[in-house]
Amino acid sequence: MNTRSAWTRLALGVAPFALTLATTAAILMAMGENPLEAYANLIGGGFESWAKVADVAISMVPLMLASAGMLITFAAGLWNIGVEGQMVAGALLTTWVVQAIEAPSAVMLPLTILAGLAGGALWGVLIGLLRTYGRVNEIFAGLGLNYVGFALTNYLIFGPWKPPGGATMSGTEPFPRSAWMPLIGSTRASWLALLLAVVAILIVYVILRDTRWGLTLKAIGLNATAAYRMGVDTRRHVIFALMACGALAGLGGSLQTTAIYHRLIPQITGGNGYLAQLVVLLSGLRAQWVPLVVLYFSAVQVGSPRLELRMLLDSSLGGVLQGAVVLFFLLVNGFRQRVGLRDR
């Protein structure tokens, strides 16, 4: 097979999606459901109205920020499973700021952004310290701390930060209006949040392509020993990478509170930290593909609750559609490599 021809490349590019649709259709039919109806509901749930489109747009923000951060840690060869925790930390510090300070929007919003950045960064540093000085693999350090983060959120919601009316799963009291990110018209989307996400992905793109730091991280990811010998302080840069990723993810968590829920809820990350892992893998670790992939993920995310309403299916079909694409993407990539090697 000639892997270089445009048609082959197109076919291989579409294959992961086709395989995903085929397998999920098979599962749905085995369960006695109509797959076309399910897909129609999914797409309709995401795009049937401008309000829905705005929902998709805003739900892209935290995922895009987390993915942008994860591009940095991926460059350094780190499996940053701790992004969830980093988002939680950003959200918690933001909530604390909102609860502690009374100020007009012009002061409050920058403060919440800073709080998000700082909270996530600190959480990232903690993982970095465990990894570099404690020699605990970042997967386990990050994952363990994710659970700690969620327990901490629950504790705060059901303890010190419970609303006057009594604690519930719906979270803290709504934030005052001064802590809401400015919205576009009457939609639920915030232009400032979208702007932040776009800026973040651009910054990461430039960092990884054209800065010495980006190159340093790549060197660490590819061969930490050689990088160290060339004078790179590998420990410090591993911690920095996790810190930078944490900051972006923390901002994502912060925006979950200030731009989406307008309060702190127990599952504040919405699983975006884990999804970011999938996003970055599916974008082939390249920043320029991240927005498109995030769009797909968010559309599925926003569309899938309709499955529960209309078809009494579980909305986790959305997760299946997201994860399966990435799995098939990796497998098709491998197939392409295998065929390519045989050709040579």
Binding site: R212, L215, K218, A219, L222
Partner: peptide, 23 residues
Amino acid sequence: GLVRGLSVREHFVLARQRAGFLV
């Protein structure tokens, strides 16, 4: 000594460019 996956040029940046934010 060398980082598999990086070009010779990139090695010169790593080993010899010590200042500046951008490469």
